[in-house]
Design a protein around this nucleic acid. Structure first.
Ligand SMILES: [Mn+2]
Ligand SMILES: [Mn+2]
Ligand SMILES: [Zn+2]
Ligand SMILES: [Zn+2]
Lengths: 140, 140
DNA sequence: AATCTAAATAGAAACCATTTCTATTTGTAA
DNA sequence: TTACAAATAGAAATGGTTTCTATTTAGATT
């Protein structure tokens, strides 16, 4: 919790009640949630917090790698706390299709494939996005 | 071109002018396009074709693996012709960030990682979506 | 060729997650 | 305490996508 405060300050963001409440919300559970879900929950303690503010804060905290964003079903965003050892480093996430739990996949196994794909397709690979779906330990 | 007609009929779809025009649009170029782009182009020969019809047709043809769909930037859909040897088989696509050219990546290199990821995260992997970005031969 | 019917369509409207706007408030450094 | 840029609330707009319904059409049957 303290770590997030430092990270916000270091990046020039103020410590607003909204930001603190959003982080507190995610700290309680290691699951993804939509902006609206976050809003409805956080509003219980901050009734005047607006949904646009939640969107703004989620995006800002994603930019500084406090949160991670997943493009979920139906073209909606999901956010979750990034718990990687080094959140700024390239890595992936896997989410449970039953309970939305998130886990870090800190090794990226794809970099080694760059050469092979280049030979086959002629493309110089500049990036990739990997969306892993599964069932977590507790849901089996 | 003839192949697509067979595929449509086999799946119980009628051969409408709209569907033929959409396939003709994609056959001319091997690039992704948004529904709106498809619509604006196809409308030149079929002025009465509606945008909802384009959406419907794109989705139907994606379901029977004539087209492939990519979740592009800004939460928009992109569609392109699938040119895999066996379009129904699991595979990926890479798209050029400059010209939107699509290439098939028919080998999926990720299946072998299932075991390793399971050991590290406890997740049983049930699926994945890989979005590869690069620069194609012609754009370099 | 005429008839039939489920599939497909056009056009308008609705949907709804997300973004923008502006006047007001607030965190924080001095 | 004061000053001010950052942040906010609330309302409105945005825009890609979907839904709705009356009408048309592709293709099978005669
Ligand atoms: Mn992470
Ligand atoms: Mn394909
Ligand atoms: Zn789970
Ligand atoms: Zn290119």
């Amino acid at each position: 919790m303290r770590g997030y405060r430092q990270k916000l300050k270091k990046n020039g963001f103020k410590l607003t009640p909204g930001r603190e409440a959003i982080i507190a919300f995610f700290s309680g559970k290691n699951h993804y949630a939509t902006p609206e879900t976050v809003w409805k929950e956080v509003r219980k303690s901050l009734p005047r917090l607006g949904l646009p503010t939640v969107y703004r804060n989620l995006e800002q905290m994603r930019k500084i790698n406090i949160l991670t964003q997943v493009d979920g079903a139906e073209n909606r965003f999901y956010f979750g706390l990034c718990r990687a050892k080094n959140p700024g480093e390239h890595h992936h996430h896997i989410s449970c299709q039953k309970c939305r739990r998130v886990s870090e996949v800190e090794n990226c196994y794809l970099q080694s494939l760059t050469k092979e794909i280049k030979e086959k397709t002629g493309f110089q690979i500049t990036g990739h996005k990997l969306q892993l779906t599964g069932v977590c330990k507790d849901c089996r």
